[in-house]
Amino acid sequence: MINFIQFTLTRAGLAIITLLLVCFIVFSLMELVPGTCAERYLAFKNTQGSQITYEDIEKEKIRLGLDKPFLYRYGKWVSNIVFNGDFGDSCILRMNINELLSGRFMLSLTICLVALIFSYLIAIPVGIISATTKYASLDNTLKFISYLGIALPNFLVALCIMLFMTVYYGDTMTGLFSQDYENEPWSSAKLFDFLSRAWLPIFVLGWNATAFALQTVRALMLDENDKLYVMAARARGISGMSLLWRYPAKHSLGPVINSIGFDLNRIFSALPIVALILILTEAGALLIEALARSNDQQLAGAIIFLLTATIVFVNFITDIILAIIDPRIRKGVMGGG
């Protein structure tokens, strides 16, 4: 038991170090991009027709604290998060980041998690069928659909569906809510409204993720299916689904659980581009704005911080779960217990 606690604490410690490291890397990379947020902000203003001078930009930099050294700014930012739970103000949007992200990050996470669950629900049974079916044509069809999911870029799928909807239904399918519900508190009607629109990003992201997961499950199943213990089970007269579920499938799914964190990250990485195309009002779209358009270190840092925190947390939990359920890992952790 002591060993287990030690294992948990070490994992937790490593998770926190990973988190800080990732944020540091993001912060540093943004430092290398030419043009500061002050400049971008004033460039925005210039499109509005204002004459802007060098002094204006310098003043804006001072106002935003961009004249301070990099490490000082990073340190201040991190300590503010750790001690006050405050992400500070977004440079370009001029509003508090906590306020800005409060609902949006959860929306992003919901979309990603639903897409993830959706993909696993399809990938696991279909992967098993695909690996074990006697009909080559069924296997090939399933393979074809899943390869299509991998091969088609997400944004292209989104654009095609949008175009289709525009031409045939006169609705561009953009946004997460219709305007009536945008600023309403959550209710069953708003949830329904959300779902009537959110299916599109979930489908687009899910298809791609399903394809990946399906290939993984299929490959693992094929691997396990030929092993001796499966043959032994077959020899004992077990067959059909009960054979698959009790023997090869059980062992194939270990690595799948292990890759939940990884898959979540992959889905989230794909989200910003899709979100941008579909004008989703969630954190992924803000992330790409902050990274690519406004060089808003605070905002990008905050979103990456939250995302990394989620993934690190999910990994931490899956590690613990695996340590509990998988006898091989349990044995390693508990030291032979």
């Binding site: 902000y41 925005f44 203003k45 499109t47 509005q48 027709g49 370009i92 949007l93 001029r94 704005e289």
Partner: peptide, 8 residues
Amino acid sequence: NATEAGTS
């Protein structure tokens, strides 16, 4: 385009 961008 966005808050304070392309709104004039």
